[in-house]
Design a protein around this nucleic acid. Structure first.
Lengths: 355, 355
DNA sequence: GACTCGGTTTACAACGTTGTATATTCTCGT
DNA sequence: ACGAGAATATACAACGTTGTAAACCGAGTC
């Protein structure tokens, strides 16, 4: 254990509180005293004990981020943005993984595990609308993603329907009419999962373009891993259904699909155009480079941290929960016939929505 | 702020210490007392305050992991393994990023930032052998990676030379003799960086196979990003140097190289065989799938956490620093002519049409 | 020279927990 | 019945920090 304020106080010949005042840059400390204390701090190599400070203040300066799996590109990139945003505000980020396990997600909410943190950013993968009441937890919580709506917490999500619709519209604009979907969810009923929302956007775009809906083109694929994208693509090719474009509900599926198309000798984008969702870094470097929906990840991270900090600093009255969706954009790349990557910003609802 | 032990004690009609004893599963508590306390805990929804516990015990149950950039596959996968290993031991992981910035790396070591942690796992990217003395820090530290050797701390690294040599030997075994290297470092002198070590392994393998060394085949490429891999590959193709294989010093470079080879219409592995290093998840799903060196990441993570825990629990005398290198393996995939077994794990219903 | 009033410094308690030492109760053998 | 010794429960202090209130100091005022 390093030296404490008491050690510094003894060396400098002052009281502990004076040391504390110097450390906390309190105004009314005489210059001479200050420099004596600073010298002692330097001499002893004193560092404030944040645990003790945390006990006094009730704050730790650390927030938790709980995601399904940090290896998934989307979450790695999200974590990166969140760590940066938190760092700018002087906060550390403790990362936890649920591995897409419902029990683990419940544990996270129960605060059963580590709670030496000021708040939680939570991106659930198995909890659903029916678990909404579990979100009423006794600590600051901001929800990420689209599995639960209308809960008692702040919620940062994306324009799933309209951005999916814009993606499909982009395929229509490059002349496609038989557009397959990869990544639908087995459950027939339309729910509030992102897969269902994105499929809804797909149907809206078809309607708007006057293209009939063909259920054979909507392929069930879960979970959204690369191999599943490839597998679903192979099945679709084998099924003999005619199609000239693919809308993959995330980039990872799309990259798997690119692989399967490559294996089968199908040219992209000549024979089949492909667009993904998430705009992960890798989309830029795939062969061919992958067009995608950019959901505004950096903004999502910044807003999420801001909301959480707001909640942490909230005194008495709790303001009502907010739901925020950043702007999205369609990134046109080779897989839909745009050789030079060009980022185009679209927005169906001018500015950050607040609901 | 939630209820404290004092609240529980009052409700249960016992002393705080008895509550503490129940919470800590101390042996000698009468069954009746225990159940009364547990009932009170339940009624109030009491949760122990880990900050206070940390102050008493001097332990926080949290370790820091500092890596250059969590978005890089290697580090995401390393972080994943470390979070799992730490979780198994009841530890949380606070993730920090240095962004490959020397100043940030120095700050990390200075403990200037957050030190409400029990120890640090540190993977530097800019510090080098000359900074060895800076590693003598007043908190438990385990070093990851190969930028600094012989420092005063425990160090988990890999068999860079022999595994690189094995990779090249694998290329020789599949009949290649003109083997290019992607990812060498500009600095001429051989140092202890992983790039230099891996190039040394390359030369050893050439010597062993009786293949002459051709400096034109060793391409300087830094940093190790996908686009640089593609760029270096394009330059090599344009340079008119003859080659029938590529050893990329990491998988990310190799994936970039695959892209450039694809663009140029060069067949992999028929015209050029490619092997990478790190065996990131993505190598498995590239087109074609990428052969690679598996450095034993899971073991690295487990050992690193174990060493750190050992240091944290160390009482008086400090044992001398250890250096540990897990076993490595060569993973043979399509890019060196080994067709990939289709091991697909999926949902029952995956890949089918929605209707 | 007593008095006021800021600036400066201090002692003390408190944050919530657990180790130590001590007190109380129980169990058992004689 | 009566200790001996174990089992059970308690009071108090301490971890390192900071808020509170009070004390101290020096200079200006009457």
């Amino acid at each position: 254990m390093g030296p404490t304020m008491h050690d510094v106080a003894r060396v400098a010949g002052v009281s502990v509180k004076t040391v504390s005042n110097v450390v906390n840059e309190y105004q009314h400390v005489k210059a001479g005293t200050r420099s004596r204390v600073l010298a002692a701090i330097d001499e002893l190599g004193y560092r404030p004990n944040l645990t003790a400070r945390g006990l006094r203040s009730g704050r730790t300066g650390v927030i938790r981020l709980a995601v399904p799996d940090i290896r998934q590109n989307y979450f790695a990139e999200l974590a990166d943005e969140i760590i940066r945003a938190a760092d700018r505000r002087g906060l550390g980020v403790l990362v936890q993984q649920t591995g897409g396990d419902r029990e683990r997600e419940l544990e996270i909410l129960a605060g059963r595990s580590l709670q030496m943190t000021d708040g939680l950013l939570f991106s659930p993968e198995r909890l659903g609308q029916e678990d909404r009441d579990l979100l009423d937890v006794p600590f600051p919580l901001v929800l990420l993603g689209e599995r639960i709506f209308g809960g008692p917490t702040d919620h940062v999500t994306m324009h799933n329907i309209s951005s999916a619709s814009a993606a499909v519209q982009h395929l229509v604009e490059v002349g496609r009419r038989r557009i397959a979907v990869l990544g639908a969810h087995p459950d027939g009923r339309e729910t509030l999962r992102s897969s269902d929302l994105r499929v809804r956007g797909y149907r809206q775009a078809l309607d708007a373009a006057g293209i009939p809906y063909d259920p054979d083109l909507v392929r069930v694929t879960a979970p959204w891993h690369r191999e599943n994208g490839a597998h679903a693509m192979r099945l679709l090719l084998r099924a003999g259904v005619e199609f000239d474009a693919v809308f993959a509900l995330n980039d990872t599926l799309a990259l798997g699909a690119l692989r399967a198309l490559g294996e089968a000798g199908v040219a992209v984008p000549e024979d089949v155009a492909v667009i993904g969702f998430d705009n992960i870094d890798e989309a830029h470097f795939a062969v061919p480079s992958l067009s995608s929906v950019d959901p505004g990840r950096a903004k999502i991270a910044g807003i999420a941290v801001d909301l959480l900090v707001e909640r942490i600093e909230e005194k008495g009255e709790r303001r009502p929960p907010r739901r925020i969706k950043p702007d999205f954009g369609i990134v046109r790349r080779e897989s839909t016939g745009f050789p030079q990557p060009r980022d185009v910003r679209l927005d169906d609802s001018s500015g950050t929505a607040l609901s």
